[in-house]
Amino acid sequence: EEARRKEAFLDQFSGELCAKISDEVLTESIRATAEAEIRLALEEKAACIARCSAEECDSIVEETLAEQLAAMTQDILDNELRRICKFIK
């Protein structure tokens, strides 16, 4: 009877301990994973913003240069032509 009671106790205690240890490990692991995933997502977002900013910067530079060069070359050619016309006259 004593042995049977002890076995029953050990079974019950094992189950409780297993649940407790599982709970501790799962709580820890879930939190650690959540923290890591949030950190990763924030890093990815920052990297994405950095890439998009660089692309936007290039696009602004390209657009401005194209506008500047178009206006500048037109001006220079007009001036040159005017100068030649004046010279011919």
């Binding site: 939190r31 959540a34 949030i38 997502a41 977002k45």
Partner: peptide, 23 residues
């Protein structure tokens, strides 16, 4: 679990999720 976290973050948007929410 990682995939699950990613799903929640994607669904809610990283700016709207705290560690507590995710947990």
């Amino acid at each position: 679990l990682k995939a699950l976290c990613k799903e929640v973050i994607k669904e809610k948007g990283i700016e709207n999720v705290t560690v507590e929410d995710l947990v």
